[in-house]
Design a binder for these strands. Structure first.
Lengths: 175, 175
DNA sequence: GAGATATGATTGACACGTCAATGAGATGGA
DNA sequence: TCCATCTCATTGACGTGTCAATCATATCTC
């Protein structure tokens, strides 16, 4: 009786279990704490905020080490206005440059300055070490495997593949 | 050979594996996306931000439904100045009140207004449904169990228990 | 090629978070 | 009692994030 939904195709109408809610809260709290710890350490040791690092990582991995503003926004999944504000601040600090785009006069091409590239280079190793220390060192290979599986499951739940033949979805999400 | 550290007490000096870094990024990205989705929905459906909700949840669960400002900050793990700013905004919107504390003239006692309590009450069910829909419905009981284990492991790694007899730690963390 | 529309990017207003400084009251020792 | 010191809470400055509005250029259609 406790599970509520029993028939195979039944819509799961039961309320969320208290344990599930507790795990949700633990997930949010723990990841927030990890972000806070690593973000503070990154800023203090390297002068770069996590946002700076994300922008510079995308640029340093880009083809030709430069990206159109909107490509950069897509690469790191930011709103364009957020990126525009942030690039303005980073430009003011001399970390990045914005040049006119040769193929589209509306657009801008963003690239690291020499100083920015050097700062990013120096930030990488300490940041990796911090992730290892506070996150990776904690978990066993089995736990990594389980976490990988969980995250893939959550991602495919958030972004269900558009079925090739959209006849009968067994997900029960719609309706 | 692949694991690098073999001797039982050896300090793990190997670099983080690329797979571990990928899982770290997936963890950060996925939780950020979940927070964004749930936060947007909460705000649009109820007019409360996730921060509002957190404050109001702590107040509604508190003994006597009121808390000293610093107790509230501790309960939700916020800096006091952040809380002070946020309470100022919430007070302006009529969600909470600050009264003088009878036992300590420095302090303030925070409580929900009638309107605030009613807004929180109305926000609860939709928010729980959203967490269920986007998070809880995705995972199997086995995945919940694994996630619970992983989060507990991460927490105890972040906050190692001060050993009763602090003689020889086998953690290998220090020096 | 002229006008409607779409797109790339920026801006302004405002909510939010952090840090350092401050004010105001409690506390404890001479 | 008087003063140093601690704690509670707030404030101001500034960096950050979101939303709606804007501007300029590109593109599409006739």
């Amino acid at each position: 009786m406790r599970d509520g939904a029993r028939a195979t195709g039944a819509v799961a109408r039961r309320r969320m279990a208290v344990g599930e809610l507790a795990i949700w809260r633990a997930l949010i709290d723990t990841t927030a704490e990890l972000r806070r710890i690593l973000g503070t350490q990154l800023l203090q040791e390297t002068g770069l905020s996590p946002a700076d690092y994300q922008v510079m990582l995308a640029l340093s991995e880009a083809n030709g080490r430069r990206l159109r503003s909107s490509e950069l926004a897509a690469a790191i999944d930011w709103e364009r206005s957020r990126l525009s504000h942030h690039l303005g601040r980073m430009e003011g600090r001399g970390l990045i440059r914005r040049d006119d785009c040769p193929t589209d006069n509306r657009g801008a091409e963003v690239s690291l300055t020499g100083e920015g590239a050097e700062m990013f280079r120096r930030a990488t190793a300490p940041h990796m070490r911090a992730i290892k220390k506070h996150f990776a060192d904690a978990l066993t290979p089995e736990q990594f495997e389980a976490l990988d599986d969980i995250l893939r499951t959550l991602q495919s739940h958030l972004h269900p593949e558009p079925a090739v033949a959209p006849a009968a979805s067994t997900k029960g999400e719609s309706s």
